[in-house]
């Protein structure tokens, strides 16, 4: 059975004029110990998806319909108390900015101990031992000394390590990491990614990595979901998606990377920009920027179809597959 299954999830934002849809019919599954990535540009809805898994989207956002199941427990129907049992203990989150996540006026040790003690009945001393062990686990030198320090006394990379330690405290099944390395330097980023990868492998923790950096994704995730304007437009094994992207948006995203062009040449840009929630185009949301858009794309919403190794929501791919099928029939 899948560890986490999200099906037909719709998330809306309530405004004075009308309801704005941030996520439209999003479905995916996550197995135990699997590492998946959600990529897309800002405004694609990747963070909203991450937040809605643990039902953390605040007003004016709300889950309109759909289901999120952790094993067989339905998360969307839970009350706050039941959710708090899940958050942290079963599903933990790492946010982008470690300085915003840690409380600046409490020592990191107390923050870690508080996390443990709010979920388990345990003495301060025992909790302290667990916290120090976890700090050691994330390769923080002299954890006893760090335990009594405040967040501002640590560097950015060190803070993100503390966050990872705090996430590990309760041995969760799933870690959702929302752009965990965006605020860090490349050298520190490499270390943090390796650490995250090692931790997931060693403890059999499933990871949902939210990122806009395809390079980062390719290093960590086994499977990748590409999002555009609230839809998942492509899903498949990471290597397949990077080596043979099917959806024009994924192709554009990869081709826009500087390393895809010879030095000094013009980069391949995607025309235009991501539409805002209020200005969602009709039909396939990507059609105004798509070089292959047809009349059909402007009018209808493409279905998500399975094409060989990955699943794609694009009429171009669908038509191509249909053509192949017809040719096959004729040949027979």
């Amino acid at each position: 059975m899948n560890l986490l299954s999200v099906s037909n999830l719709h998330v809306n934002f309530h405004t004075k004029e009308r309801e704005l849809a941030a996520l439209i019919d999003v479905s995916f599954t996550l197995n135990r110990g699997e590492r998946i990535a959600i990529v897309g540009e800002s405004g694609a809805g990747k963070s909203v998806l991450g937040f809605s898994i643990v039902n953390l989207i605040g007003k004016p956002g709300y889950i309109e319909s759909g289901s999120i199941k952790l094993e067989n427990k339905e998360l969307t129907k839970m009350n706050l108390r039941q959710l708090q049992e899940i958050r942290g203990k079963r599903i933990a989150m790492i946010f982008q900015d470690p300085m915003m996540t840690l409380n600046p006026v409490i020592t990191i040790g107390d923050q870690l101990v508080e996390t443990i003690r709010s979920h388990t009945k345990i003495s301060y001393k025992d909790a302290r031992n667990i916290a120090i062990e976890k700090l050691h686990h994330v390769q923080i030198a002299s954890p006893e000394r760090r335990f009594n320090q405040y967040p501002h006394e640590l560097s950015g990379g060190m803070r993100q390590r503390v966050i990872i330690a705090s996430v590990l405290l309760l041995n969760p099944d799933i870690i959702i990491a929302d752009e965990p390395t965006t605020a860090l330097d490349v050298t520190i980023q490499a270390e943090i990614l390796q650490l995250l990868l090692a931790i997931c492998r060693d403890n059999g923790v499933a990871l949902v990595l939210i990122s806009h950096d395809l390079g980062v994704v390719s290093k960590v995730a086994e499977r990748t979901l590409v999002m555009y304007a609230g839809h998942i437009v492509e899903e498949g094994p990471t290597l397949e998606i990077i080596n043979d992207p099917q959806h024009p948006y994924t192709q554009g995203l990869l081709n826009a990377l500087p390393q895809m062009t010879l030095p000094g040449q013009r980069l391949n840009q995607i025309q235009g920009s991501m539409p805002s929630l209020a200005e969602r185009p009709s039909g396939c949301a990507f059609h105004p920027r798509c070089p292959y858009a047809t009349q059909k794309c402007r009018e209808q919403q493409p279905r998500f179809i399975y094409s060989g190794v990955s699943s794609v929501a694009c009429f171009l791919v669908e038509d191509m597959l249909n053509e192949f099928a017809e040719q096959d029939q004729e040949a027979n």
């Binding site: 540009e41 995203l253 826009a256 391949n268 840009q269 995607i270």
Partner: peptide, 15 residues
């Protein structure tokens, strides 16, 4: 900036 927008600005700077 996002990757696709980065490409737009970088192209402009080169032009």
């Amino acid at each position: 900036l996002d990757v696709s927008v980065q490409a737009q600005v970088l192209n402009l700077m080169m032009d």
